[in-house]
Design a binder for these strands. Structure first.
Lengths: 150, 150
DNA sequence: CGCAAGTTAGTTGTGCACAACTCAATTGAC
DNA sequence: GTCAATTGAGTTGTGCACAACTAACTTGCG
């Protein structure tokens, strides 16, 4: 892979553009998800938590936070809202009283069916091919990994 | 570019990974920027506004919002904080009294020098090559464009 | 001219994200 | 066994993002 020489100024501009593009794309996704999830009564971060529970079953707050890279300051109020909405149930772990297990209610389980068509709509909205989505996912994963080092 | 057939299930999973990767990468960038900008007393969105002003000079709130794709509900309090920090000055436009012009103060201009090394640090932290950064920027730009349609 | 429609900032309310902190439960060093 | 350090959840405070709304101003149509 050969590359023409790149000036310092261009490098800096490129960096700005990448950071900004990432920021903008993330918000653009949020806006489209807002519509797609409106009828389910979920926000995107709430949807992410539900995905974890649908896939893995009951989990302590800690595990959910590790999977989504979110801390308790974000998850605690979010989970409280999901509980108020009747989608999850919170109970102290018998083995370790510090730990709180999050478990889907019947309504939470049932919501899964209505959420099934969402990913397809989102994917179509990106306008990318499968190969491009793969490339994008791969680059983003490497960036996140590298940034997490620092 | 040939692509093997992809099952529905795989498509849906891939989509989740892309959206989540984007979300995670955006937050990872935010965390690294938080450190890089701490000594300047700026958050990343505040830094974006300063970049616009450093590059284009005095601008009405509307123009800044268009460049950064942010609405007045986000910008008004953010600009008020920059004003409190002594970095910008806000004045009504003489021609159009509805419009508010944002102008850098002396301190705001001077901050530019101290902000110069930031992009290089960020770029190094991504761990990507120039070609990869270009690819990433291009894909993100297309995604954002497509999502803004919907 | 005079008023309806559109534009521009700002306000309010909700929710996410994270730092810094508290508190209770657990673990480990001694 | 006791107590200090660690761990897990939650709270508080700050700031971003956006929807829905208001207020002030401008423009253009009659």
């Amino acid at each position: 892979m050969t590359t023409l020489p790149v000036s310092d100024a261009e490098l800096l501009r490129l960096d700005h553009q990448v950071c900004f593009s990432l920021h903008a794309a993330s918000r653009a996704f949020g806006n489209v998800y807002r519509d797609a999830l409106k009828e389910l009564g979920l926000t995107y971060p709430q949807y992410l938590v539900m995905l974890v529970l649908w896939e893995h079953g009951p989990e302590p707050v800690k595990s959910i936070g590790e999977r989504l890279r979110l801390d308790s300051g974000t998850l605690s109020p979010l989970l409280k809202r999901l509980e108020t909405a009747g989608l999850v149930h919170r109970e102290r772990s018998p083995e370790d009283e510090r730990s709180v297990i999050i478990r889907l209610t019947g309504a939470g389980e049932e919501l899964r069916e209505r959420a099934l068509p969402v990913p397809r709509r989102m994917m179509a909205a990106t306008g990318l091919t499968v190969d491009e989505l793969r490339t994008l996912r791969s680059l983003l994963g490497r960036v996140t990994g590298a940034l997490d080092e620092a």
